[in-house]
Computed example of a mutant assay.
Amino acid sequence: MSRWRSAAWAGMGAAAMALGLYGAGAIKHSDAAQTASAEDADAPTDKDAAPAKNEPVTDPAALARLGVKTAAVTTTVASQMVDGFARGLDVGPLAAIVAEAEAARAAAAASQAEASRLETLYRQDVSASRRSVEAARALALADAARTRLAEQRVGLEFGSGLSRLGSGAIRQLVSEIAAGRAALVRIDIPGAMLAPGTVVEIGEPGSALTVRVLGAAAAADARLQSAGVLAIVRGPLARQAQAGRIVPARAATGVASSGLLVPREAIVRFQGRMWVFRQNGKAFERIALDDPQSIPQGWIVRGGLKAGDVIAVSGATGLLALDAGGAVAEAEGD
């Protein structure tokens, strides 16, 4: 019996020792876990880490994927441009004048023919009285006066430049406008003297076209009090210059301006400024343009670049996306 008691006591002692060792190990494991958890809490997370600075792309394969092409900037001389706007005119009244003039010419021709016939009969003493001849002459003169007035209304209501085109050209112009192939616009550029034949650029840069001034408009702008001029727009831009629509317009002042010529495709807009990417070795750096001026060939700049600098003339938007870390919602090609 004592032998069984001794065995039981020995088993209980071993169990107690095992429990003690296990408890010590659990406590150490818990301390280690708490220490590791505290270290993890102190360690910076991806969310808190400072974003890495985007380096300019230098890999030729990446540049090829972006479609980056380069060219050297050159100096150029161009006339300074002044900005204004062109507004499409309603040609409904012009069409009415054209129809009235045609009707007046037809009536004048008929009355003149009748007066000539009655005068011939009167001279031959055949059933025509002097009174009827005089009445026919008066009617012919009245119809001729109505014809002249109808033709003069073009110049009085629109401008002398348009009336100089002639009745046939004006009738053809009305037909083209009705078909959407042309538009009659009034151009207002404050401070610029636009004589007949002056070339004016109309439309947004990059898609603009040039038109020639016909002559002065019939009346000044009620708000600007400026003496506008008339011009005819043909081609795709004619649909954008229909009655009431306003598009940008620019004209040369005759004063020469020199600077560096930057192609429109090379410019990106970001944070309210205009930029280009200049090649520096194998990398590209973003350069702000100082005092850019729009010309038909692109932009003239007077600061930020120097003659001979190599810039990206295509793929600049992709370079901007990489340079700005992808936050280029504001950026757009020129």
Rank of each mutant, 00 (worst) to 15 (best):
R223C: 01
Q172G: 08
P196F: 06
G228E: 02
R212H: 12
S167Y: 05
R171P: 01
A220K: 15
E201L: 11
S257I: 06
V185K: 01
Q242R: 15
G244T: 12
A169N: 07
I170T: 02
R239N: 12
S257C: 05
A183S: 15
A219Y: 14
A256G: 09
I246D: 09
Q172F: 08
V200Y: 00
G235L: 13
Q225D: 09
A169F: 01
V255E: 15
T253Q: 04
A208T: 05
L214S: 08
L173V: 07
G254I: 07
V255I: 13
L214H: 05
S167H: 08
R234L: 09
I187E: 01
A227N: 12
A220G: 03
L230E: 04
T198Y: 02
V233G: 04
L165P: 00
R181E: 15
G203D: 02
E204Q: 15
A256R: 14
Q242W: 09
V174P: 08
P196V: 08
G197D: 01
L237T: 08
S226T: 14
A256S: 14
I177S: 00
D188M: 01
A227H: 10
G235H: 13
A208L: 07
V255D: 15
A251R: 04
L184S: 02
V229P: 03
R223E: 12
R212S: 12
A227M: 09
D188S: 10
A169M: 05
L230M: 06
T253I: 04
R186I: 04
S167Q: 13
L224M: 13
G197P: 01
I187R: 00
D221M: 08
G235Q: 13
V199N: 07
G166F: 01
M193K: 12
D188T: 09
E176V: 05
Q240L: 15
L184E: 03
R234D: 08
E176Q: 14
L165I: 00
P205Y: 06
P196L: 06
A216W: 03
G203A: 04
A227S: 13
E176M: 13
